[in-house]
Every structure is written in C-alpha cells, then in structure tokens.
C-alpha cells in the first residue's frame, strides 16, 4: 500500500480497531498498514465516518488498537503502559485540535510553555524564539486567548504543539473552525514547520484545499487505506474524492 517504510516517523502495521460490542460492532479501522515519513507533511483524508480520526488517535497512542502494531519511531506503542504513554505524549508528540483548546486563564506565552511546565522541562530559548517567529505571535505573547483572533489562537496552538520539539505533530481538522484566509495562513504555517523547522506533521482533514499543502495524502474509506497521492494539488485531490464518491454510489446502486 505505502511506498516507503524507511525513515518513518510513525508506522501502523495491520491495525484494527472496533467500537461497541456484539451486534452493534463498528469496524473503525480494518487492517490498516501505513508509514508516515519523517520530515514530511502527511494529510489523512476521507468522508465522515471513514475512520480517519480514529487512525490519527491510534497513531498518536490515544486509542489502543485491537490488533496490529503502531510504531512511533522505534517505539512499539502497544507495549507501553498508561504512564509510559503519558511520558511519550509529553516528550515526543504534539497536538493541534479543531477547537484550539487553549486555557483561557493563561496568557499566550504561558499556554505556549504549558507542555514544558507539565513535563518540568526547561524551555530551549532558541527553539522557542524560532517557534514564536514562525507563528508570528511575538507581539501577542502577553495576551489572553480570548483577546486573540481565531487564526491567532490556532497559530498559538501550533506553537504549543511545537514547543517541546516533538517527533510528530498530530492535527485533527485544524482549520475546521477557521475562515478561508486564516485557514490558508495556518496551513502555510504547518508547511513551514516541515520545511523550515524540520518537523513531521500528520493532519486529518476533509478539505481538498487543505490537503494541497501536504507532501502526501492518504485516502481512507470504511476503515481502509484506499489510496495515496504524492505532491497533491487541490484539483487532483478533489477529482480523486469525487471519483471515489461516484464509485461508492455505483456500488450502492448495484448492491
């Protein structure tokens, strides 16, 4: 399915995830194998209910898999205890959410430093400065999230995800709550994170325009990886998505 397994930041090997029990079981992931290369921006796309978010949660170690294995770098996530998973989140993973999830009581700067404070780590001044410049929030650091625009809030969230120099940044529909200008801004930022800061970004989205910013797109349908596109453009992604939708409709008509 995937072309490259070398230098993978995250790897899923035959993972399966079921929700519910008995007759109401939903197969969210069906034997998924995928490798997300380090230093690249990967988008995971699929219609709602396709399992794309579940895949993200499993890759990030937030959900346990029923079978198969997830490797973050060399680490087998299924072998980790709850505490070790927490430590892993703390040091090697960053998250960006659809709904920003900033703490309104803290200033922008404090929100940014929060992961480091939780980990009890000393902030790396150079790195922090680079991150703050990348997200263009230098003059907004003293403000509360409530005083920032939606775009600024999400950029701050990205900065928070980068603060600990994680191995992978996972973003779940990061542009879902942004207008088109702020969306483009944010996606450009994620792009720069990869190009200029050497980060690895994995993003779930349903927006072909967002996928265009990625190096690769994984297409998921019904819990399975059904395709991959390298150096995507919005046009090609849209075409692919429509094609799949048509194919699906035909299948539905036939059956």
């Amino acid at each position: 399915m995937t072309s490259s397994t070398t230098l993978a930041a995250v790897r899923a090997v035959g993972i399966t995830k079921r929700y519910g029990s008995g007759a109401v079981t939903v197969l969210a992931l069906d034997n998924v194998t995928a490798a997300l290369p380090a230093g690249q921006f990967t988008a995971i796309m699929g219609p709602s209910g396709s399992g794309k978010s579940t895949l993200l949660y499993c890759l990030a170690g937030l959900e346990t898999v029923d079978s198969g294995t997830v490797y973050l770098g060399e680490t087998d996530l299924s072998a980790l205890s709850e505490r070790e998973l927490t430590r892993l989140r703390r040091s090697r993973v960053g998250f960006v959410f659809q709904s920003f999830n900033l703490l309104p009581a803290l200033s922008a700067d404090e929100n940014l430093q929060l992961p480091l404070r939780i980990a009890g780590r000393r902030p790396d001044r150079d790195w922090t400065a680079r991150v703050v410049d990348a997200v263009k929030l230098r003059d907004r650091l003293g403000h509360r999230p409530g005083e920032l625009s939606g775009g600024e809030q999400q950029r701050l969230a990205v900065a928070r995800a980068l603060a600990g120099q994680p191995a992978v940044v996972f973003a779940d529909e990061p542009t879902g709550n942004l207008d088109s200008r702020a969306s483009a801004d944010l996606l450009g930022l994620l792009r720069r994170c990869v190009d200029e800061l050497g980060q690895t970004v994995v993003m779930v989205t349903h927006d072909p325009a967002a996928a265009e910013y990625a190096d690769r797109v994984l297409f998921i349908t019904d819990g399975r990886v059904v395709g991959e596109m390298v150096e995507p453009t919005a046009e090609r992604v849209r075409g692919r998505v429509q094609q799949r939708a048509l194919a699906r409709e035909r299948k539905d008509v036939v059956s």
Binding site: R83, T86, R89, F95, F97, N101, P115, I118, R160
Partner: peptide, 14 residues
Amino acid sequence: TRELALLRCLGAEG
C-alpha cells in the same frame, strides 16, 4: 473535562 483532557494530551500524568 475538556480542559483536563487537554492537559492529559499535553503529557500531564493523572
């Protein structure tokens, strides 16, 4: 809940 969950995501232990 959401705030606590966020802290867990950021690596806070129980």
